[in-house]
Design a protein around this nucleic acid. Structure first.
Length: 760
DNA sequence: ACGATGATTATGACCAAC
DNA sequence: AGTTGGTCATAATCATCG
């Protein structure tokens, strides 16, 4: 079912497509490339300024206007102009304000007042909307929809907004992982806003797919989220929201019954609830299937548990501690006979893995809870961050951490036996008493992926030692999501973190420096910077559901034209990624274009290395199903004058990068940024050149610090191999321009890659 | 063809329940 | 204290009628 409203609010797909793909006749060589990249740097909202056919010239003028607005700092004006939004916006008043827009074709007028007023009131609002990506939205007060009259809770005074010194301020500072709006907390496994939570709940289980009116890669922010349901829903899934956690009919029925039950009980306050004769009368639900047991714990979270007394702490910050002490268990906020006694009613079934998870989970939650508590108490202090990192790292080692701060439900017997099992293993419950666990423990949040051989531990890890290799990959993912969120939240709230790497606002040169007194432990600014990088690259692996590029991907025998179209996907995503980088946004427009132009092929190549699968001698990608890989033999179809040399260089580059590096997404992301910021020679502006140099150094340092945090002294070996690898990369890039020459049907190839590769 | 009206749909915010 | 679904208000479109 398509939303009439959504379609009405959408910018014209046609105009956007025209703008995004550009007019091939209008583009010539580098100027065409600039236009192409400009189209990508600008988002759909920007295209919406005028509903006119976008010719190249017109678009340049639009772009100049948009860029003017982009260059203005949004916060001040947004607050000032959106304060009136606190008042309810009546249709009449809004019409009075915008008579010139009163046309059904105008998408703006069809938007709710929350969008209309700021957009029309000032172009700065557009900038605010564009700045509202999860990355750029530094704090609570920046949301353009925050004071629009609809979102009343967001309309605090400027002084109170984003005040990181009080817990409430920190809570408000959470940003939705889907759209970047103000988040309320964890919903379906991910920190989201109310709106995305509701959207997900309503649509995640829908049998029919939405259709994207654009090109399947819509940018989702607090403004654009309504434009494309499909991309919004996909984003929800890609950030880790779990449809399995939406209550099913049975669970809803129980919940309803429970409510009725409670209401009935409240209406009979004088009746003795312990009177067995009353029980069956007052409760429509049998005690044996009391919904209280499972309401907040969908099966997938706790694996479902069988008969026996259960413990159901409502959250990690409260009941997790009470679980530690049997005497405290009586403090459960649930009435006796509900949470602590009685079965679950047969939802799901538990496996040994689940049980094991639960035991570890309890410990790890305790560690995280303590660390979080400490972090809240002394926000931003190195100690608290260290504690948080240690707990997170320990959890990471265990891998089976359920990322939820939700409830844990298990029988007391089960809990005790599993605690014993866990304690008898090497995973000591460090953090509870300051013990840092096993001797080989190296505190770090960004531990290498599971499949990464660490020089520090000789390829083993805590989990393997525990014989839990069968634990599902899903938990790994959930752990990552949770840690990302938890760390980000804590960091976001820290008053000491004003100097965030790359945002140009108070960044201190000494924020990142090897040889920190904490040894290889990453400091807060480094953690934050890595988080920024991770966020920026978060869209790179999103699945591709339809579109021309996907069709190219799905072909069995891919032609060079298909290869170009496939590259187009990555190119566009790389532009999007760049836009999310505070460091990139510091540059002038020309500087941005120069970097993208200069670094695109190199970044593509680096990306290609990470996707290279030696066993099948092909590239595999997460954006389409596994079987649709791209064989390296595709080189054989390319320009015979240079294809063999290029293939050889590529394979050299593959072997030049250590396997550990290739498998580490974050490290590869950093390398790509180093590559991106290594093209200052193409830039004229002295200011840009200085900034580019600085960011190049910063990202290089950050990569080394990151590797150092993983491998200690051994990180130097990576530092030694990188220069040669990057040199090789330059050669590949320099020789790539004619690689597709004479092999591509120009009219069928996407324009963006055609700008980088001569086709005829 | 046009405007008025009610129905339908999607969204977002708030809230109670647990 | 955090997360869930329910509920309501709002806005936009569609269908119908005069």
């Amino acid at each position: 079912m398509t939303s009439p409203r959504a379609s009405a609010e959408k910018p014209s797909a046609e105009s956007v497509d025209n703008a995004a793909s550009g007019s091939s006749s209008a583009r010539v060589d580098s100027s065409g490339l600039v236009n192409e990249i400009r189209c990508l740097v600008a988002s759909k909202e920007e295209m919406e300024l005028d509903k006119v056919a976008v010719t190249s010239r017109q678009y340049k003028m639009q772009f100049a206007r948009v860029m003017e607005t982009l260059n203005e700092p949004p916060e001040e004006k947004v607050i000032k102009e959106e304060r009136p939004g606190l008042l309810p916006v009546s249709p009449s008043s809004s019409e009075d304000d915008e008579p010139q827009m009163n046309t059904p074709e105008d998408p703006v007028i069809h938007s709710p007042p929350s969008l209309r007023a700021p957009v029309l009131g000032s172009p700065t609002s557009i900038a605010a909307a564009l700045h509202n990506s999860p990355l750029n939205q530094g704090g609570y007060g920046q949301s353009p929809t925050g004071c629009d009259g609809e979102n009343r809770t967001s309309c605090e005074s400027p002084g109170s907004a984003g005040d990181a010194t009080d817990p409430e301020g920190r809570r408000r500072q959470k940003t939705c992982r889907v759209c970047g709006d103000h988040a309320t907390g964890y919903n379906f496994n991910v920190i989201t806003c109310e709106s995305c939570k509701a959207f997900f709940r309503r649509n995640a289980l829908r049998p029919k797919e939405f259709k994207c009116p654009y090109s399947e890669d819509c940018d989702i922010n607090s403004v654009s989220r309504r434009f494309c349901q499909k991309c919004r829903l996909r984003k929800c899934f890609s950030v880790g929201m779990k449809k399995e956690w939406i209550l099913n009919e049975e669970q809803l029925r129980r919940r309803k019954n429970s409510r009725l039950n409670n209401m009935a009980n409240q209406q009979r306050p004088l009746q003795n609830p312990h009177d067995p004769s009353m029980k069956n009368i007052s409760s429509p639900v049998s005690v044996l299937t009391s919904p209280q047991m499972s309401l907040h714990s969908p099966p997938s979270r706790h694996g479902g548990l069988s008969m026996g007394p259960i413990v159901s702490p409502p959250s990690v910050t409260t009941s997790a501690f009470s679980l530690l002490s049997p005497t405290d268990s009586s403090n459960s906020d649930s009435p006796p006979g509900q949470n602590r006694c009685g079965p679950l009613g047969g939802i799901g079934h538990h496996s040994s893995t689940d049980s094991y998870d639960s035991a570890l989970l309890l410990q790890q939650r305790l560690q995280l809870a303590q660390a979080r508590q400490a972090a809240v108490q002394s926000m931003g202090s190195p100690q608290s961050m260290l504690q948080l990192s240690q707990a997170a790292a320990a959890a990471n080692r265990g891998v089976t951490v359920d990322p939820l701060r939700g409830r844990v439900m298990m029988s007391i017997d089960e809990y005790q036996s599993l605690m014993q099992m866990a304690q008898s293993s090497n995973l000591s419950p460090m953090g509870l008493n300051g013990d840092q666990g096993s001797p080989d423990y190296k505190p770090n949040v960004f531990s290498p992926p599971m499949n990464m051989t660490s020089p520090l531990n000789g390829g083993s890890n805590g989990l393997a030692e525990l014989g839990a290799g069968h634990i599902k990959h899903e938990f790994d993912e959930r752990l990552k999501n949770y840690l990302d969120g938890a760390i980000n939240d804590e960091l976001n709230g820290s008053p000491d973190l004003a100097a965030v790497f790359g945002n140009g606002n108070g960044k201190k040169d000494d924020d990142i420096h090897p040889g920190d007194k904490l040894s290889f432990q990453l400091n807060t600014a480094e953690l934050r910077a890595l988080d920024n990088v991770r966020e920026a690259f978060s869209g790179m692996n999103e699945t591709l559901d339809s579109g021309k590029q996907r069709e190219s991907f799905m072909k069995n025998n891919k032609t060079p034209t298909d290869i170009m179209n496939i590259m187009d996907i990555t190119m566009r995503r790389l532009v999007k990624m760049s836009k999310k980088l505070p460091a990139f946004n510091e540059l002038s427009n020309e500087g941005k274009f120069a970097l993208l132009k200069g670094g695109m092929v190199e970044m593509l190549t680096v990306r290609g290395v990470t996707r290279y699968d030696a066993s099948s001698n092909s590239w595999k990608t997460p954006v389409v199903p596994d079987q649709y890989n791209v064989p390296v033999s595709m080189f054989d179809q390319l320009n015979m004058d240079c294809r063999d040399e290029q293939k050889h260089r590529f394979m050299q580059f593959v072997s030049a990068l250590h396997e550990d590096l290739r498998k580490n997404e974050l490290a590869i992301s950093l390398i790509m940024l180093i590559v991106l910021f290594s093209h200052r020679d193409n830039v004229n502006s002295p200011n840009d050149r200085i900034l580019i140099d600085k960011h190049h150094r910063d990202y290089s340092a950050l990569l080394f610090r990151y590797l150092e945090s993983l491998y200690g002294e051994d990180a130097r070996k990576f530092q030694e191999i990188l220069p040669r690898a990057l040199e090789l990369l330059h050669v590949i890039s320099d020789h790539s321009i004619t690689l597709f020459m004479g092999t591509v049907k120009t009219e069928e190839a996407e324009p963006l890659p055609r700008e980088f590769f001569k086709t005829d």
